[in-house]
Simulated assay, not measured.
Amino acid sequence: MQSAKVDDTITVSHQIQPDDVRRIREAGFVAIINNRPDGEAADQPAGAEIARAAAEEGLAYAEIPVGRDGIGPDQIAGFARVLGEASGPVFAFCRTGTRSINLWALTQAGERDPDTILQLASGAGYDLSPMRPVLERLTEGAGQ
Rank of each mutant, 00 (worst) to 15 (best):
M1G: 13
M1K: 04
Q2R: 13
D7W: 11
D7A: 10
T9P: 00
I10E: 03
H14V: 03
D20V: 09
R22K: 15
R25F: 09
A27V: 07
G28C: 11
V30T: 14
A31K: 01
I32L: 12
I33C: 06
N34F: 02
N34C: 10
N35D: 14
R36F: 08
A42D: 14
A42Q: 09
A42H: 10
P45C: 10
I50E: 03
A53V: 03
E57F: 01
G58Y: 06
A60F: 00
Y61K: 03
E63A: 15
G67P: 08
R68A: 15
D69F: 12
G70N: 06
P73A: 15
Q75L: 07
G78I: 05
F79A: 00
A80T: 00
L83F: 12
G84R: 04
S87Q: 15
G88Y: 13
F91Q: 01
A92Y: 04
C94N: 03
G97A: 02
T98Q: 08
R99Y: 07
R99G: 01
A105H: 05
L106Q: 03
G110F: 09
D113R: 13
P114G: 08
P114S: 09
D115R: 14
D115W: 10
T116E: 15
I117D: 09
A121S: 12
A121H: 11
G123Q: 13
G125L: 07
G125I: 08
D127L: 05
E136F: 07
T139F: 04
G141V: 00
G141Y: 06
Q144W: 15
